[in-house]
Write a protein that binds this DNA or RNA. Structure first.
Lengths: 168, 168
DNA sequence: ATTAATTTTCAAAATATTTTGAAAATTCGG
DNA sequence: CCGAATTTTCAAAATATTTTGAAAATTAAT
């Protein structure tokens, strides 16, 4: 397979995958493009390569920066802004996990705490099932939280990788 | 907080969360409704409680069954079909993880294998960055795969929970 | 076999999301 | 400070997704 073909394939698959992960196709494609770009790119480069409008590039780049996945870089003597993506996939994953914990898991757990304090008699079936469900989610959330911390903190830790396999 | 209010809140939040996880709002809401229902529900029950059309309920129930999160139950003497959701959240998570591994992670890894065989000189910067990125994703995928297996196989395993905390 | 209850399908309508592109705002060299 | 280059914004247009609802298919009781 030719490099140009492989790049296309990579960008398009990464984009499709993005939609399964709650980010939009274009944002994921911009990210993919930057991931495999040896040097920083400008908005115009991205527009040209992905065939999308300036406004679109601008918005998606901004979101990627918010997610901590892309950085602006200033190239001396150049007026234009350049953009570059973190290339280390473990760092990328770490960043995504951190953000999603903050944006999704934490608020969800806070809500479950509240909901578990619902009024009503525990002997009422309706109440019992509700509280049990919410409690189950809280427990799972705590477990997931621990797991994710391990992923985030361990990166390519060899010992951990080995340890994990013991549990399989 | 009243039970009815808490239920509403739960359903609506679970639905919103679904959109961040690549499933649609309604499917997540139907799931939420079934999670906190003490007894199996019919399509009509779901239509009434969520205010959605019959066709919509039907399609989303089918998807939930495909995901292995909901089961049809036959109630003796009744003509209608009833539906019930797995209530154990750890089992729910296990099921979701298994499915998503199969639907997303596995194909992605297969593609990365192909892409890593791209032709071209490794001393070419373009080629190098591309191959390095793809290789990084493969490594991460393997790691993620192991982690997820641990989650799936360990469930509420106390020892594991404790062990995980050591790595934090 | 007939029929009424129930489920499924799917084209069209409604809704939601994404994209565009041109105008406004900002930045910066001279 | 001026003006050209660049970035940002955002309403409107394009596109994509979800929902509806009625017709078709299926099911099961009589």
């Amino acid at each position: 397979m030719k490099l140009s073909e492989a790049k296309q394939q990579f960008i398009s698959t990464w984009g499709a995958m993005g939609t399964h992960w709650g980010i939009n196709r274009t944002m994921a494609q911009v990210h993919a493009l930057l991931l495999i770009a040896p040097d920083p790119l400008t908005q115009d480069d991205i527009m040209a390569q992905l065939n999308i409008s300036r406004g679109n590039v601008n918005m998606n780049i901004r979101d990627l920066i918010d997610w901590g996945l892309v950085d602006r870089v200033l190239i001396q003597g150049e007026r234009k802004e350049y953009f570059t993506a973190e290339k280390d996939i473990f760092k990328v994953a770490t960043q995504i996990i951190k953000e999603r914990k903050k944006r999704e898991l934490d608020p969800m757990m806070k809500l479950m705490d509240q909901l578990s304090k619902v009024e009503g008699d525990r002997r009422d079936k309706e109440v019992k099932v509700f509280v049990d469900t919410v409690t189950g989610i809280k427990k799972f959330g705590a477990h997931a939280n621990d797991m994710l911390d391990v992923v985030v903190k361990s990166d390519e830790n060899w010992f951990l990788s080995t340890a994990l396999k013991l549990f399989k």
